[in-house]
């Protein structure tokens, strides 16, 4: 099967799914909780995105997400590289990080709110605490994947530690680290959105709560899909940057 055919079938499936959803919402469901795709599309503009409050809320979430993601990448890679430079460091810290990573962080959310208040700080902090772990884990894993021979070779030719990281270790870490960065992007958004929904003071959380409490599923779905599209776009952005950094391989 050609790539074109695969794409066409995939598209047809998605269209079919939407059609079924629309039919169900229109003719079968009698519940006021189900909104078809056409209702959602109608609610999208001007009702949801046309409202200035919603637009500001989406923008604020985006800013929080970017700040939290940047912080997790910077600190995560810093910790990962510092720890990963020595074998003993990696072996002692890696299992600890893995165990911390495995803790369901949602239970810490009320604690974060107590410490950071209800402003953007708590969302950034919670996003950061979600995003930093995959970055650390994958940076450590990536440093391990570097060919020993090349490290020895570079050292023998007189590379300094900085040069070693910049020219040998870093290029080889790209694939693993970016897998971590994509995961970190998803998890950061998870953290930010969890905090947004939990605190719900005028942000995205406030509107999702308002829409679900007033039984307005079309508007709720429109808002949720906006955020989902944002998530997909950001993921693609990370993928583009990854392609740029792994160009040396071809």
């Amino acid at each position: 099967m050609s790539a074109r055919q695969v794409m066409l079938i995939r598209l047809a499936l998605i269209v079919l799914l939407f059609a079924l959803w629309e039919l169900y919402a229109r003719f079968v469901s009698t519940s006021s909780l189900v909104a078809g795709p056409s209702d959602v599309a109608l609610a999208w503009w001007p009702k949801v995105l046309g409202e200035p409050g919603v637009r500001i809320a989406v923008l604020v979430t985006l800013v929080e997400l970017v700040v939290a993601f940047t912080l997790s990448v910077v600190f995560g890679m810093l910790i990962g590289i510092l720890v990963g430079l020595s074998n003993i460091g990696r072996r002692s810290v890696y299992p600890v990080v893995l165990l911390l990573y495995g803790i369901p962080q949602a239970i810490m959310l009320p604690l974060f709110v107590l410490v950071f208040g209800i402003g953007p700080a708590v969302k950034i902090a919670f996003g950061f605490s979600h995003g930093i772990f995959p970055v650390i884990v994958n940076t450590l894993a990536g440093m391990r994947n570097v060919n020993r021979l090349m490290v020895t070779g570079a050292t023998a030719m007189g590379a300094t530690r900085v040069q070693l990281v910049r020219y040998v270790i870093f290029p080889h870490m790209v694939a693993t680290v970016f897998a971590g960065l994509r995961l970190a992007m998803t998890l950061t958004l998870l953290g930010v959105v969890l905090a947004e929904i939990f605190v719900s003071q005028g942000g995205i959380g406030f509107y999702t709560l308002a829409y679900s409490e007033t039984f307005n599923p079309a508007a709720l779905m429109a808002l949720v899909l906006t955020l989902a599209l944002m998530a997909i776009a950001l993921n693609e952005l990370v993928r583009l940057v990854e392609a740029r950094f792994s160009r040396w391989k071809d």
Binding site: R182, L190, L220, V224, N235
Partner: peptide, 12 residues
Amino acid sequence: AVPLTLFFPLFV
């Protein structure tokens, strides 16, 4: 890859 948390209000 899409955080399903976004959809949690819908589940509720």
